[in-house]
Amino acid sequence: MILDQHIKKWFESKKGTDSNLKSLMKSISWRIVGTIDTIVISFIVTGQLTMALSIGSVEVVSKILLYYLHERVWESATKTKEHEPEKEYARS
């Protein structure tokens, strides 16, 4: 409780926005939650803890790679090309 206010300052940015550190921490915590979910489901399906842990360890690496590729595709698909003029819309 004593460190609470000091730690909060690490995550504060402009009002209404997350800091880069907070976004990074949220990404890591979400990946941990997702991997635990995969391990639990794998254990329920296979009934083998070692198999579930193996699936979870492969999944964490593959999901990071897939997310990176997904981001790169979105970046290239939404990038405005320099030689293309911006579209102008009719004004009413």
Rank of each mutant, 00 (worst) to 15 (best):
M1L: 13
M1G: 08
I2D: 14
I2P: 05
L3G: 05
L3C: 03
I7C: 00
K8I: 03
K9H: 10
K9G: 02
W10Y: 08
E12R: 14
E12Q: 13
S13I: 03
K14W: 06
K14M: 00
K15C: 00
G16M: 05
T17V: 09
T17F: 14
D18V: 04
D18Q: 07
D18R: 12
S19R: 03
S19K: 03
N20K: 12
L21A: 01
K22N: 11
K22A: 10
K22T: 00
S23K: 13
S23L: 12
L24M: 13
M25S: 15
K26D: 10
K26A: 14
K26I: 04
S27E: 06
S27V: 07
I28Y: 08
W30C: 11
W30I: 05
W30E: 11
R31P: 06
I32S: 00
I32L: 15
V33F: 15
V33E: 12
G34K: 09
T35F: 02
I36G: 02
D37Y: 13
T38E: 00
V40Q: 09
I41W: 11
S42T: 03
S42C: 05
F43T: 06
F43M: 06
I44N: 03
V45L: 08
V45A: 08
V45N: 08
T46N: 07
T46R: 00
G47N: 00
L49I: 07
L49A: 02
T50W: 15
T50M: 15
M51W: 11
L53E: 01
L53F: 14
G56V: 00
G56Y: 04
S57D: 05
V58M: 10
V60W: 12
S62Q: 11
S62A: 12
I64P: 04
I64E: 06
L65Y: 07
L66V: 01
Y67W: 10
Y67I: 04
L69A: 13
E71V: 04
E71Y: 08
R72S: 13
R72H: 10
R72A: 15
R72V: 14
V73T: 07
V73H: 04
V73F: 15
V73S: 05
W74V: 05
W74K: 09
W74M: 14
S76Q: 09
K79W: 07
K81Y: 05
E82Y: 11
H83F: 07
E84F: 14
P85G: 12
P85D: 07
P85R: 13
P85W: 05
E86Q: 14
K87M: 15
A90W: 13
A90G: 06
R91L: 10
R91M: 09
S92H: 14
S92Q: 14
